[in-house]
Design a protein around this nucleic acid. Structure first.
Length: 493
RNA sequence: GCGGUUGUGGUCUAGACUGGUUAGGACCCAAGCUUCCCAAGCUUGUAGCCCGGGUUCAAAUCCCGGCAACCGCACCA
């Protein structure tokens, strides 16, 4: 796809992102963010935190390590369930999931089977390679987690976390006390997760190291129903584009029309949707909510909707975030394995809180901004929300003589403290506009001969390519009104 | 991981089949000149054959191995 090449090339040339370790040939599944990409990433994180921590005064951010000891991920089920038994055909070299082969033969679920069971079944059923009929080698465990050894002897082992969520669950007890036992309680964290993907592909979409932004909300479904009901009441008429598991098509419906979903779920679903429309400023046509079918869902998820984005560069609808009602599976597991009490007292006795998880693949969300914002028809330009754009404004002298560079430098200094802004003088004025169009600089300010006369300058809008003239005194206020969305550019024309 | 295709300055590419001067071009970038608003022009400059080995007097070019990318399959608790 030509469009995709253009975007990827721009990302490399201008400093957004590129393959990691590139001077050594690169390594699949790892990306580096350059100076512009990192700004975009940091801005996204800030807006995400402001938005989701703002949903309730008892939602907070925590930070946890990338490495967990073996026991944590044993308890979470990742050691057992995050791995597959792979068998390999000795003749043609094709690999298969052992449990799938057995399932096909016996017609019942074989996911529980370990290496030994699979090997037994394969010889018992005399299974052979579906591709060529060859015999299978000994089954091997393939775990998607990266194992690391701890300490000088290497006797202790741990894993790079495959998701940030576990760090939140194992801190539930401590934070519940620290926050004086208030529920619902939300713990958010933004951090790296690691999965040893068999074939990482499609750029930022599937990586071996990636960023997650997650918010885990702990609550008791019957006890806190009213709290969420009240919150949901405010947004219940909002429309979302959604496809339920048993629907054929995506439909636009009001949140309150969705059946079988409790307010705690609908409230957060509505808010996630709002985040995509209002903060990331994506078109309603580009995003949808999709309910996963029974066999797509993880076993511990009671309700699971994904938010999907229609990517030009990735060939269609792909998951960018999810809302998972995990029941009390996680805390129950950790209570059992750690012997720590993770229940809370209620009138009806001790109860283990339930969790609803808001989970965002940060890199995917960054890519969705670039994918959706990149235009490459008559000119190349990037349409980013001004709050997220790495550069909000750029300042130029119209020509490099008669004191205009010096004057523009003063303007730059005055803007620098309030905005993300650059100053440049090289090339022609048109070239500078073009350069800034490409990286999504929302507003370009040009100092010309009138500036010397009357202290006004022009502000050009990236989308309209039109200019307004404002005084240097007012320019900071005008820009901040534009960036905050208090006024539109057309209001000044 | 399997099969197919591919890999040349920052970007896009010519050259490879048929081995042979300083690997050519366009754009970008930087410095300077010029310039009163949308990639103008001129001068100068930085920088490249994915990596390793082999064949040969001689390898970007042929052979082998590796790495990476794209597509398909498989995989994605």
């Amino acid at each position: 796809m030509a469009e995709q090449d253009g975007l990827e090339s721009m990302c490399r040339r201008r400093g957004f992102l590129w393959q990691s370790s590139e001077i050594y040939g690169g390594e699949a599944g790892f990306y580096d963010y350059g100076h512009l990409g990192t700004k975009l990433l940091e801005n996204w994180k800030k807006e995400w935190k402001d938005f989701f921590l703002g949903l309730d005064e008892n939602y907070h951010l925590i930070n946890t390590p990338n490495i967990y000891p073996h026991r944590v991920l044993d308890a979470s089920g990742h050691v057992d369930h995050f791995s597959d038994v792979m068998v390999r055909c000795e003749r043609c070299g094709a690999s298969f999931r052992g449990d799938h082969l057995v399932e096909e033969e016996i017609g019942e679920n074989a996911e529980w089977m370990g290496k030994e069971e699979i090997e037994e079944k394969i010889s018992e059923l005399e299974l052979s390679c579906p591709e060529c009929g060859g015999t299978f080698s000994e089954p091997k465990d393939f775990n998607m987690m990266f194992k690391v050894s701890l300490g000088p002897t290497g006797e202790k082992s741990g894993f790079l976390r495959p998701e940030t969520a576990q760090g939140t669950y194992i801190n539930f007890r401590r934070e519940f006390r620290a926050l004086r036992k208030q529920m619902p309680m939300g713990l958010a964290t933004i951090g790296s997760a690691f999965r040893n993907e068999i074939s990482p592909r499609q750029g930022l979409y599937r990586m071996r190291e990636f960023l997650q932004a997650e918010l885990q909300i702990f609550f008791l479904p019957d006890k806190h129903e009213e709290v969420f009901k009240e919150k949901f009441e405010v947004i219940k008429d909002k429309k979302i584009r959604i496809k339920r598991a048993d629907w054929k098509d995506t439909k636009e419906v009001e949140l309150c029309e969705l059946e079988g979903l409790a307010p705690f779920y609908l409230f957060h679903l509505g808010k996630i949707y709002e985040f995509y429309l209002d903060v990331m400023e994506l078109d309603p046509e580009e995003i949808r909510v999709r309910e996963l079918s029974e066999d797509e869902k993880a076993f511990y998820n009671k309700i699971h909707f994904d938010i999907e984005m229609d990517f030009d560069t990735l060939g269609g609808w792909k998951e960018v975030s999810g809302l998972h009602y995990r029941g009390n599976y996680d805390l129950k597991q950790h209570q059992k394995e750690s012997n720590a009490t993770l229940s809370v007292p209620t009138e009806e006795g001790k109860k283990i809180p339930h969790v609803i998880e808001l989970s965002f693949g940060v890199d995917r969300n960054i890519w969705s901004l670039l994918d959706s914002g990149y235009h490459s028809n008559d000119r190349d330009w990037l349409d980013l929300p001004s709050k997220l754009a790495p550069r909000q404004a750029a300042v130029f002298p119209l020509v490099r003589k008669d004191g205009l560079p010096e004057k523009s430098r003063e303007v730059f200094k005055k803007l620098e403290k309030d905005f993300r802004v650059t100053w440049e003088k090289s090339g022609s004025i048109g070239k500078r506009y073009a350069r800034n169009d490409e990286v999504g600089t929302r507003y370009c300010l040009t100092v010309d001969y009138d500036t010397i006369e009357d202290n006004t300058l022009t502000i050009r809008d990236i989308e309209r390519k039109e200019q307004i003239r404002v005084s240097i005194e007012e320019m900071n206020d005008v820009l901040s009104d534009l960036i905050e969305g208090k006024k539109g550019f057309e209001d000044y024309l």
